[in-house]
Amino acid sequence: MDRASRFCRRTFLGDAWRTVAWGAAGVVTLGLAGMLRHVVGRTIDIPLPADLLERAGRQDGVQVDGIFVRWSGDTPTAFSLRCTHLGCRTRPDPASGGFACPCHGSRFDREGAVIRGPAEAPLARVPVRLEGARWIATVEADHG
């Protein structure tokens, strides 16, 4: 083995070792960052406005902080406006009563079901509960 090939092998091994070390450091960093997401909590409570019943009765529904609430009978039904494709906030479409995504054009019907992709899953239902006199919606932290 001549000097040149020994040098190349040493250089290659040095580069490979550094690449592995940097890769391992990167994986550890990303793992810690991923754990952070679980530490900070994933759901939040949104109090719905006190005049929700009146407003929802006058209109077809109301938007509250990234969720859309309709009144059905005695209980509100809520959807997350977060598009299930990539998370853009969809907008209510008054003409159809459904929802449209302004980023990639997905469309959803009144019940949140997909009419047109690229989204494949329906809009997420948001659980709503009554606490005293206030309706509270519980949503994912990145709900929209």
């Binding site: 960093t29 990303l30 960052a33 991923g34 754990m35 997401r37 994933r42 932290a141």
Partner: peptide
């Protein structure tokens, strides 16, 4: 982890 590292937690 990548999304949290670069954009912060949701």
């Amino acid at each position: 982890g990548l999304a949290t590292l670069l954009l912060g937690p949701p």
